[in-house]
């Protein structure tokens, strides 16, 4: 292998420039991942997966795999999740839907696990794009997790459904006492896990094992299971309540990853279906109806590609023919 001095100098300059880019966070490559485009809508969206305008919004399918990096590993029963996104008056709405033949809601039985879905974004204060595996120190992630059992409420109704022949031989404490913080310390202290009025938890993490509730629980959501499919809508204002959470702005891009738990498969904690980061593009343009002309566009793109390749072949062949003629 012959090495020339100018080539060595060029490589040296590129190595120095690349190292400086790495140390200063200057980007030298772009992601080619799927892009989810959030368009603006004129009407205020409803926190309802059946909101009429969702039909007009293009969906993007994101592939999922089983989580195989940390224990408990597993998942793999949900191959893909379909995403749609809009924004209205500086508030982001994201709709996630996926196939699930069984509706698994209550999780108070020891052997039962709930269906759930979570969205993950880089935290506002992240200095670089975090690892989609719960981020890393200095580059944390913000997670919104919706759980079917949290939406249904895990109260006495769920207990009665699980144990229909159950019998209480004591009335326990007076009702006014059971609502007091003294008797429900987790609820009284504001532990988000003990909340029964919110289907979505806002979480932050900076690596495996650091997942915790965010200071502000400002993401909300609602889900619905019908005909073997879950559909869940998340929403949160663009502005983050603290630096650990994600920040959004029209005209700017960020990243988004998805996790889905299939209760029927025993999914919980790390046992889940995960995606890598996709690009979330917050477009300033207003929603328009789906185009029906994409078939023609695809035909044109493929035909154009074929013509380009054939044109290259013809030009190249002409060159070879010209050379042969000159030789003759």
């Amino acid at each position: 292998m012959k090495w020339s001095k100018p080539a060595v100098l060029l490589v040296g300059a590129l190595v120095i420039a690349g190292a400086l880019a790495g140390l200063t966070g200057v980007r030298t490559a772009t992601s080619q991942a799927v892009t989810l485009k959030a368009v603006a809508v004129a009407d205020k969206p409803e926190l309802n997966p059946d909101w009429a305008t969702w039909v007009k919004i293009p969906s993007v399918d994101v592939q999922l795999t089983n989580q195989a990096v940390t224990y408990p590993k597993g998942g793999g029963t949900v191959p893909a999740v379909s995403l749609k996104a809009v924004h209205h008056e500086n508030t982001l709405y994201i709709r996630a839907s996926w196939k699930d033949q069984t509706e698994n809601v209550p999780s108070i039985d020891m052997a039962a696990f709930t269906d759930a879905v979570a969205l993950e974004f880089p935290g506002k204060s992240a200095v670089s794009v975090p690892s989609f595996c719960m981020g890393q120190p200095g580059s944390g992630v913000n997670i919104w997790q919706w759980k079917a059992d949290a939406q249904a409420g895990a109260g006495s109704a769920a207990l009665a459904k699980l144990y229909p022949n159950g019998y209480a031989d004591s009335s326990g404490f007076p009702e006014e006492l059971t609502k007091a913080a003294l008797y429900q310390p987790a609820f009284g202290l504001g532990n988000p896990v003990a909340r029964t009025d919110a289907a979505v938890q806002t979480l932050v993490a900076q690596a495996f094992g650091t997942l915790s509730a965010a200071a502000a629980q400002d993401a909300t959501g609602a889900g619905m299971w019908r005909n073997g499919e879950w559909s869940v809508v998340f929403t949160r204002p663009f502005s983050a309540a603290d630096g650990d959470q994600a920040e959004f702005a029209a005209g700017k891009n960020t990243n988004l990853a998805v996790a889905v738990w299939d209760g029927a498969n025993g999914d919980r904690a790390g046992q889940k279906n995960v995606s890598q980061f996709v690009t979330l593009q917050l477009s300033g343009e207003l929603v328009k109806a789906k185009s029906e002309d994409w078939g023609a566009l695809w035909f044109g793109a493929i035909l154009g590609g074929v013509l380009v390749v054939l044109g290259l072949a013809a030009l190249g062949w002409a060159g070879v023919a010209g050379t042969a003629k000159e030789r003759a």
């Binding site: 590129l14 690349g18 190292a19 880019a21 030298t28």
Partner: peptide, 10 residues
């Protein structure tokens, strides 16, 4: 992390 942009430029 530092090698990534080096390799990308190369």
């Amino acid at each position: 992390t530092v090698t990534f942009p080096v390799a990308a430029l190369l």
